[in-house]
């Protein structure tokens, strides 16, 4: 009697254990950096946004689940290199330099850089010149643009503060510790809508965002590109754009 019960229990346990294997789909770790609305931001304690929805849609199309990891922007590429994350979906601009260390999908969004100043400060685009202070997020194209076009040329002599996230950069602007913040246009618009800051200039850079995977991870790259195409063709992309913009 005891022996039979034992066998039955063992069988049940094994069934439960192995059932997991068959039901489980592939899960990829998606690295992102909240603080970049509407692409990724925190709402009610969760990371949400365009990039998140896009990854979910691609996952649905290609048959995988995603797990979000929210870290600082400049930790994303190291994460791919180390293998702690599989995909980066963080409004990351495709650049030649970055393409040397990671692989990008086809572009899924295009944007420019914008300049934020504090409401009622009376400041305009001239904060990009001279003794003014700017804040940027470390490692973003805005950061690199300011360095290459303003600092290296000597046009901007003031200090540029580098923060881990735009949330802090904008807070610094509101606190009047800097005169301007340079960041991607769609994000600037979102911050301006919810904070006492104004978007007063756009720097046309014609950047394009792509999803990134570790160099040489062609299997995942192909999946993502296929999924992306699927999302565009099926009209889901338009839905998402409508939803967030």
């Amino acid at each position: 009697m005891l022996k039979r019960t034992f066998v039955v229990m063992l069988a049940l346990a094994l069934m439960v254990a192995f059932s997991g294997f068959t039901v489980m789909a592939e899960t990829y770790v998606v690295g992102t950096s909240a603080g970049f609305p509407p692409f990724e931001y925190i709402q009610d304690g969760e990371v949400v946004g365009f990039d998140i929805d896009l990854m979910r849609a691609i996952g649905e199309s290609q048959g995988f689940d995603i797990e979000i990891q929210d870290i600082s922007f400049d930790s994303l590429i190291p994460g791919l290199q180390a293998g702690t994350i599989d995909v980066v979906a963080a409004g990351m601009t495709i650049t030649e330099q970055r393409a040397q260390v990671v692989d990008f999908t086809d572009p899924y969004y295009s944007a420019n850089q914008a300049l934020l100043v504090k409401e009622d400060s009376g400041n305009n685009v001239t904060v990009l010149f001279g003794d003014n202070r700017l804040a940027v997020q470390t490692g973003t194209t805005g950061d690199l643009w300011v360095e290459e076009h303003l600092q290296d040329t000597g046009i901007l002599t003031g200090n540029v503060t580098h923060f881990d996230t735009f949330v802090l950069a904008v807070q610094d602007l509101i606190n009047e510790n800097v005169e301007g913040v340079v960041l991607d246009t769609p994000v600037a618009q979102r911050y301006a809508a919810e904070n006492p800051v104004l978007m007063i200039a756009e720097l046309v850079t014609g950047e394009e965002y792509g999803l990134a995977v570790a160099r040489g991870n062609t299997e995942l790259l192909d999946k993502l590109n296929a999924g992306l195409q699927d999302v565009i063709d099926s009209g889901v992309m338009d839905e998402l754009l409508d939803k967030h913009f």
Partner: peptide, 10 residues
Amino acid sequence: KFIASRNYQF
């Protein structure tokens, strides 16, 4: 961090 964010040699 600054250097690494430019040369990606983290």
